[in-house]
Design a protein around this nucleic acid. Sequence first.
DNA 1: AGTGCGGCCTGTCCGC
DNA 2: TGCGGACAGGCCGCAC
Length: 271
Amino acid sequence: MPELPEVETTVQGLTRYLKGKSIQKVAFHRLTIRYPLPVEWIEKIEQQSIHTIKRRAKLIIMQLDNAYLAWHLGMTGSLRVSKEGEDKRKHDHIEFTLNNGTILRFHDPRRFGYLSYFQGKEALYKSLTHYGPEPLSKEFTGDYLWQLSRHKKQAIKNFIMDQSVVVGVGNIYACEALFAAGIRPQQPAGKISLINYKRLVEQIKKVLTLAIAQGGTTLKDFENADAKPGYFQQSLQVYGREKKPCYTCHTAIRNNKIGGRSSFYCPTCQQ
DNA sequence: AGTGCGGCCTGTCCGC
DNA sequence: TGCGGACAGGCCGCAC
C-alpha cells in the first residue's frame, strides 16, 4: 500500500500523538508478520519513551531512549492511535499502550509489513545502506538518474521503483510521474535522454509533494494515524483509469503489465 | 551482474 | 447465493 506520501502522512500524524510519550505495555497478538517478532523485544521496548518519529524511504523510524524501531507498512499496513478499549479490529497485530491511555495499533491484513528493533544508531544505519536517495532531496536530480541508467535495459517504471535507485516511489506514483513527464512506462531506462530525466525528476518531486499535501492516496484501506483517509486519489491522472479518457487528450488509458504489475499510461501523451 | 518472476498473505470484486 | 480466479499500494529470494 503505502508509498512515500502515505508513510510521510502517517509520520506527521504519529508525531502529534506520540512524541514524548512513554510506552507502558507492548502486546504482540501474532508472533510472525512478514518476519518473526521475538518476544524478548517486549521487555526491551516497555518503559522506553518515544523521542522522535521520522521517515527514511518507506520506513517509519522511532527513536526510543536507547533503541530504534523501524516499521514497514508493506501493502496493507497502517499505524493508528486511538483510545484504550476503542476501535479494536481484526488484524491489529501489535499494540503499544502509552502513558496517557491511548494505544498505538499496527494493523495489517496481508502481513507484508514488519517491525525491526535496533539497539543503537549504528545498527539502524547499517540496515539502511542499500537505499538510494530521498526523492525530495537535492541529491535526487535528472543527472543522477541519467548517469545511473546508462546501458540499463530495464523498463523505466521498474527502474524508478527500485529502492536502491530512489526510495519511496511505488506503483501509483511511478505511473503518475511518468504520465506527467510524458514518458511511457515500458521505455528502457538506458535509452531515455537527460532532458527527459530532468523532466521526470521534476514530476516525481511534484507528484509526491502534492500527494503529501493531500494526505496520501486512499484506494481501499489507507488511513493515517487518526484513521482518516487521504485525498490524492481525486488527483490521479492515470492510475486505476484503464479505458477511461485521458484528461489531456481523451485517448483511452491503457493498462499493461510490467514486471507483473499494472501500469497505466496514455498512449498519446506518453512516448 | 542484471533482470524477471513467483511467493508471501487476506480481502474484495467480478463473471459464471 | 456460491465459487473460482484475478487482482491489490511491497519486496525478498531464487532462477536464468
